[in-house]
Amino acid sequence: MIEIAIVVALHVIGLAMLLSLWRLLRGPTAPDRILALDTLYVSTIAQLILFGMYLNTEIYFEAALVIAMLGFFGTVVLSKYVIRRDIVE
């Protein structure tokens, strides 16, 4: 029963990723695109964790942790660039 719930959740998160990708490509402003990219990071992390639960392996949890760290750093850098038009102070 839990496997069915994980598969359904994988499909729902996949749909959320497609919608985030659509907003990333179509977004009218730069902050919209940054928010869509951040949402795509979070969806990717959820997808990897669910896939790791489905396969009962721990390697996907480690990959999700790396993506979480890189996603946070990327969002901060992009937001700083949009606000100040300069990354390095």
Rank of each mutant, 00 (worst) to 15 (best):
residue 9 A to W: 07
residue 9 A to S: 15
residue 9 A to G: 12
residue 11 H to I: 12
residue 11 H to N: 12
residue 11 H to T: 10
residue 13 I to R: 02
residue 16 A to Y: 13
residue 16 A to E: 02
residue 18 L to M: 14
residue 18 L to Q: 12
residue 18 L to I: 13
residue 19 L to P: 03
residue 19 L to I: 15
residue 20 S to Q: 11
residue 21 L to I: 04
residue 21 L to G: 07
residue 21 L to E: 01
residue 21 L to R: 01
residue 22 W to G: 05
residue 23 R to I: 00
residue 24 L to T: 01
residue 24 L to W: 00
residue 27 G to D: 03
residue 27 G to P: 00
residue 28 P to H: 09
residue 28 P to L: 07
residue 29 T to D: 14
residue 30 A to W: 10
residue 30 A to T: 13
residue 31 P to L: 09
residue 31 P to A: 13
residue 32 D to Q: 12
residue 34 I to T: 08
residue 37 L to M: 13
residue 38 D to N: 15
residue 39 T to N: 11
residue 40 L to K: 00
residue 41 Y to D: 01
residue 42 V to A: 09
residue 43 S to W: 00
residue 43 S to M: 06
residue 45 I to A: 06
residue 49 I to G: 06
residue 51 F to E: 07
residue 51 F to L: 15
residue 52 G to S: 08
residue 52 G to Q: 03
residue 53 M to Q: 15
residue 53 M to A: 14
residue 54 Y to K: 13
residue 55 L to S: 12
residue 56 N to R: 14
residue 56 N to T: 14
residue 56 N to Q: 14
residue 57 T to Q: 15
residue 58 E to W: 03
residue 58 E to L: 11
residue 59 I to P: 01
residue 60 Y to Q: 13
residue 60 Y to G: 14
residue 62 E to Q: 05
residue 62 E to W: 08
residue 62 E to I: 12
residue 62 E to A: 11
residue 62 E to M: 09
residue 62 E to C: 07
residue 63 A to P: 01
residue 64 A to F: 10
residue 64 A to M: 10
residue 65 L to C: 07
residue 65 L to M: 11
residue 66 V to I: 15
residue 68 A to N: 09
residue 68 A to P: 05
residue 70 L to P: 02
residue 71 G to P: 12
residue 72 F to S: 00
residue 73 F to P: 06
residue 74 G to K: 05
residue 77 V to W: 03
residue 77 V to D: 08
residue 78 L to M: 14
residue 78 L to Y: 08
residue 79 S to E: 11
residue 79 S to V: 06
residue 79 S to F: 07
residue 80 K to C: 12
residue 80 K to A: 12
residue 81 Y to S: 07
residue 81 Y to P: 09
residue 83 I to M: 10
